[in-house]
């Protein structure tokens, strides 16, 4: 039985109508393409709606910048395994970080800054930069004295626990005297170039919520230069 085919149709359309096998194949391809496009749109929305890395999530030493780290890390957990102090964890769905990526939280357990950096050596992909050989050059974040109101040293006491526990004591954080109406204060002052962001100061801060915290560098530090808005008067 031959089908009636209108005369004014293109050659391509004609060949599809005349050839049911091909018609079937085209149907299948378009159906799959439809599923793929629809699925990809939904999945992309899901991926982008995953929470961004929270500020308290710190990466192991030598970690690439977050965006590159996210693509380079293959979530194998070899760094976690080789951490002698078991501070590293792999993110579950409950953690505000991409699933399966390694992190530590300074307030719970800070990085002990092993001189042989076993976590970096374990990384098979270079997500933890193998060029990092001196742990003092690591950049996991930077300590910032975020709360001047509650810090005991600002109240005139000499707690200074953050200065005393720092593994790079006297260099990364030191006491700077300031004279004000309360008298002579000894203020813990971080040198951002020396601080590795290991988090020991945050861990040991004696208050129930730490007044000194390790933040990712882009959150914790300003950058010199000019901001056009700063000089504009509206």
């Amino acid at each position: 039985m031959t089908k009636h085919i209108p005369e004014k149709v293109s050659v391509a359309v004609k060949s599809v109508i005349e050839n049911p096998e091909r018609r079937k194949a085209m149907k299948r391809i378009f159906r799959h393409a439809g599923v793929a496009v629809f699925g990809a749109v939904v999945a992309q929305a899901v991926i982008f709606s995953r929470p961004a890395r929270a500020a308290k999530i710190l990466r192991p030493p030598g970690a690439l910048p977050e965006k590159e780290f996210d693509s380079t890390c293959i979530r194998c957990g070899l760094c976690v395994k080789d951490c002698p102090y078991d501070i590293l964890k792999l993110a579950t769905w409950a953690d505000p970080a991409p699933l399966g990526t390694p992190f530590f939280v300074a307030r719970q357990d800070p990085c002990r800054m092993c001189t042989d950096i076993p976590c970096v050596k374990a990384c098979p992909t270079g997500a933890l930069d193998p060029l990092l050989t001196d742990i003092r050059k690591a950049d996991m974040g930077v300590a910032v004295l975020v709360d001047h109101e509650n810090c005991l040293n600002y109240k005139g006491l000499t707690c200074s626990i953050c200065v005393r526990v720092c593994p790079i004591r006297g260099e990364a954080i030191s006491l700077k005297p300031i004279q004000n109406e309360r008298g002579l204060l000894q203020i813990p002052t971080v040198d951002p170039d020396k601080c590795t962001g290991c988090g020991t100061c945050e861990k040991h801060c004696v208050l129930s919520e730490a007044t000194i915290r390790v933040l990712p560098r882009e959150l914790g530090l300003g950058v010199s230069g000019t901001n056009a808005m700063g000089r504009t008067v509206w």
Partner: peptide, 18 residues
């Protein structure tokens, strides 16, 4: 194919999310 294309678009390991 979706997992591979989404890895390119989002810059993360798309399938490893689930």
């Amino acid at each position: 194919v979706m997992a591979l294309v989404l890895s390119v678009i989002t810059g993360t390991l798309a399938w490893e999310i689930i």
